[in-house]
Design a binder for these strands. Structure first.
Lengths: 127, 127, 127, 127
DNA sequence: GTGGTCTAGACCACC
DNA sequence: GTGGTCTAGACCACG
């Protein structure tokens, strides 16, 4: 289901969150749909259940999913909106990154080039 | 001298490295110039000497500065070149960041806007 | 596991690095294998964890090992190549040493004898 | 007089000792000859007098020179012998160096080559 | 459990 | 005074 790189330096639980968000943005996971159980997902991805649980907890605290005790986790109605709203923060972080790069002597045009040279569909899937 | 944010999630020793690089790029620290001593800088920034030492060691291993035990640390002749060369890697990381942002549904134009709206001088100092 | 001499003038953390490199060259530590944990090794060698950490950090920065925070440190695929390439520098240092010895009046033949009289297996283990 | 490299990582006081020994081995400084005063040498080489003093003290303790209070330092009668005898220790250190190099996977033949490729006169002067 | 960062304080060699 | 190494002990994020 989700694509996880266990050797990446970005925490696995963040990768899970990113993947869930990506699936929601792309419409693969729709509001009301049930998430895979923590146990199943941890087995499928060969991950520690605690790691999956941490991702689910974060998604739950951000109201992107909600858990029904004894039944499972489900996608919230306004999950997409919350994610898109969260992108504001990401853009803020992005600005900080850009600022640092410029301060270390990199030209703005180089950054623009980096963005343009990426061949990625707008729906988020790799070409 | 250097601007450090102890609350940032980026390690203090990396902030020191970034600041030193920035000063070198801006020409404030020139080749052959002596760096502030580990002890002085640690006092000035209210840091543990080991933290400053770690930053200096990394700069030394990257040949941006060189240390003469018992005398002090000095800016290397080709410090600027090494730093600019290191920016290649930073651009590579930047691409990864951009890729993730686009995959989470952010439009390229928004990223371009983020770059353009920054009011930063080309020499790296904040306005 | 590793042989450390706490009384040597060569820093302990460098001794650890040398031992790790030796084990990799000899094929005892293979690519992908997990390194002993920082804590375990520090206990086993009766060292401070920070000392071991410093050795591991250096090995990581030289790409001989790579660390996955929360999981452990692993031998890189091309660790052996990197080490052998690093030996070029060692030979350069060796030349400097030889030069000084000759300048202090030692005959080249004596140096050749020193090399030949060593009883060391080609795989690096003491007889 | 002496060639000192203040940027070298080999301690200055050791460089002084090495230079004095080299001059004695080459016959430039003969037994009974007076050494330059600590003060003069420190001025001439732009060094801290303490550094020169440390070198002289070590040479004195090894009986290579002897000091006559109020007059100066002089080369001992058997200075050359002492130096050549000291070379035994250097050869012992050299063996240790060679052992480590071989243990890190360097072939003996490469070390022999390093020795042979040096174009240095036996009397210690560079060609 | 893992690695990573930081502080506090010590000792050393060198200048 | 300088940089370099080491210990002790703490805290954090991550699995």
């Amino acid at each position: 289901m989700f694509q996880i790189d266990p050797m990446s330096r970005v925490p696995i639980y963040e990768q899970i969150i990113d993947e869930v968000e990506r699936f929601i943005i792309n419409g693969i996971l729709k509001p009301g749909a049930q998430m895979p159980s923590v146990r199943n997902l941890s087995v499928e991805l060969s991950l520690n259940p605690n790691t999956v649980q941490k991702a689910y907890s974060e998604l739950d605290s951000r109201k992107i999913i909600f858990s029904v005790p004894g039944k499972g986790c489900y996608i919230s109605e306004n999950a997409k909106d919350i994610i898109l709203q969260g992108n504001r923060e990401k853009l803020s972080d992005f600005k900080e990154t850009v600022k640092k790069l410029i301060m270390s002597g990199i030209d703005k045009s180089e950054l623009h080039d980096c963005i343009d040279c990426l061949n990625i569909c707008d729906n988020g899937d790799k070409l």
